[in-house]
Design a protein around this nucleic acid. Sequence first.
RNA 1: UCCUCAGUAGCUCAAUGGCAGAGCACCCGGCUGUUAACCGGGGGGUUGUAGGUUCAAAUCCUACCUGAGGAGCCA
Length: 457
Amino acid sequence: MKRETDAPRFTLNAQLPSGTAYNRALFMDTTTISHIGEKAGGSATVQGWLYNRRSSGKIQFLIVRDGTGYLQAVVPRADVPAEVWEAAERASQECSLRVTGTVREEKRAPGGYEMSAQSVEILGPSEGYPITPKEHGVDFLMNLRHLWMRSSQQHAVLRVRSEIEQAIRDFFYRREFTLIDSPILTGSAVEGTSTLFETDYFGDKAYLSQSGQLYLEPAAAAFGKVYCFGPTFRAEKSKTRRHLTEFWMIEPEVAFLRFEGLVELAEDLIVTVMGRVLERCQEDLKRLERDTKKLEAIQKPFPRITYREAVQKLAALGFSVKFGDDLGADEETALAKDLDRPLVVSRFPAAIKSFYMQPDPEDPEVVLGLDMLAPEGYGEIIGGSERIYDLALLEKRIEEHELPRDAYEWYLDVRRFGTFPHSGFGMGLERFVAWACGIHHLREAIPYPRTLKRIYP
RNA sequence: UCCUCAGUAGCUCAAUGGCAGAGCACCCGGCUGUUAACCGGGGGGUUGUAGGUUCAAAUCCUACCUGAGGAGCCA
């Protein structure tokens, strides 16, 4: 079955204007390694950093990386001037360098092409590079995150992340959503202040946003289909591999969309973006040793279970859960176990969910909310709901949750002036990236992770 | 906040009460097809901090610091 992936049809370099200074510098005088095949049989110059060097007395192999790929340059002592041989000998791990030579296909070389070097020029030396080609501990590597991202697996993860972000934007653009950037500095909390980072705002308190949702609901009334995609901050003292204090969240909000449509939108997003990763990131997934069969299995429809059904199933499995209890990590794992695609859990008791969730008209004890649990233990990647659109009910819920009414007046205006049913969800970018890449910990799914114990570098 | 585990060379680790060691990295030498190359040599230590037990502590005890994994909470 052919997937819809939203991948653009053009290739990147074809769109670049010719004759600009940066174009000459980047694409004419030198060749990016990802395009080295186009130079096979001729001469080329690459510039980048030394990934590794091996020597065997009278021959040296320089592995050069430039961010787009890896190229092995061969320096045979007999074939090059003495100063070129010596420059190659001086080249140390991660020094920057420029290498010119003839390019040819070579099966023995990583990448399939190899350069016979005619000149080697060291641009910037690198002495005592701390990350050696052996094992290191996580704390050590995270202290060197600015350098660690040069390493092949970290580099691959961040390339996949970039592709995922682009795929998400393409997904919503193609469906005629309007991008609405929600504020990062906010004056009021969505729910309580215990998980908010507080900052001084000219003598008043301000908080770093933990969700763009409240700002998107009014925008849905202005534009119909909207989404935001930005950083989100949670001051939760979570100390697990599934949590960051700063992470990126994608939040669509759609006017007149009911709950069933919301679940389909969430499914479509997951399937489309995962398809795009499979189509465009094969090389990176291979470097990450990701089992792509697991990703190919991510197809519609996803299995669904209501909270009530989940409680029954868990009780049958021996868990002591009853209606009204929150599902913990063990319970979620038990439900998602043995599934090859995400599980949609829906219709939770109102008491354990957010104040703005719409009650199910057929079962008023529960609300039209959904959690999507990724397979392979990656946990909740999406949480969303249909929103309450009745003013009186929303006012009642704000009171029940003991929220400061004044701070929500502007939000209530959405219900005062032409209220409408609407739905939305939030997807955690890093959880999706970690899942796609098959990496163990969220901190490797973001360039500079912020966790309970880390704000450096 | 709670529970569990760990801090020894730049890095990864060994030494379990008796002389502080190995591999990698770095420096020197060797090798014309290496794939985390390999072979030989060299320099490199306040054993997280403070106190205690002991003839003797990396090792046992106490406190603290730092980190990791998990719970809760969530994306």
